[in-house]
Design a protein around this nucleic acid. Structure first.
Lengths: 118, 118
DNA sequence: AATATTTCTAACCATTAGGTAGGTACATTA
DNA sequence: TAATGTACCTACCTAATGGTTAGAAATATT
């Protein structure tokens, strides 16, 4: 059983290992693979957005999915949330350090879509 | 209604548009967002693999999911399939031009996982 | 008093994704 | 005769995802 091996991916010499449950691609996908996850992270980006603003940024998502995703993103430490004790409520979301590191993935998805999908 | 707008993502000045159904991130996700899709593409990589070899590369996937995914990848022109008229059967899969273009996305997922997920 | 605002929850249902178990075909091998 | 190997396919089931609707909570505005 192969484990704790170096996953190395250089353009010139690529070494591909068996993708068991430790595979970094699988682990990333488990965290980021949802229908809306990367899109939400991409929309927040380097901004600080209120819930309602974010909702307007992604008009097709249902409110339920949006808060559900946000809650799990906060839980997974990709997004941080700041709630002001006001009425009506005001809540701001922004990416954590870890969340910011997912942006290159979304960028690749975006450029792939732009260049190859109509 | 904003449409046909330039989705531009440069590090220095990022312009983020409303993510409606034309959003390139969403379109890419629709094509590549499944649990196994990017992993299969990543495993095939620049190789030519038989069905059984690929299955051994991803030990946790069920046979049903593997052929189901492969069929839809072939349909979506990300993978090409060559079947030899032999008994027992022999079928080879490799990435198309388009499929090869998804590898940078998988690479980003891999490096994110390597660097940030235990 | 009634209404609007904003974020978020709960209940319910429909759809989809994914998994299990079994089977098929046919030549070769034992 | 029977088992083996390869690449599938099918039926069935469960779990995950996602959508709709309703509503709570508290203050400001009308």
């Amino acid at each position: 059983m192969v484990r704790n091996i170096d996953y190395q991916m250089e353009k010139s010499q690529k070494i591909i290992k068996q993708s068991d449950e430790n595979c970094p691609v699988r682990k990333s996908l488990a965290l980021l693979g949802g229908k809306w996850t990367l899109l939400i992270l991409f929309q927040i980006n380097d901004r600080v957005l209120r819930y309602g603003e974010l909702k307007r940024c992604i008009p097709d998502i249902s409110e339920k999915m949006l808060i559900q995703e946000l809650n799990s993103l906060v839980e997974n430490k990709l997004v941080s949330k700041k709630a002001y004790p006001e009425i009506p409520p005001r809540v701001e979301y922004c990416l954590t350090e870890l969340g910011l590191k997912t942006l290159p993935i979304a960028d690749k998805l975006a450029s792939f879509g732009l260049q190859n999908l109509k």
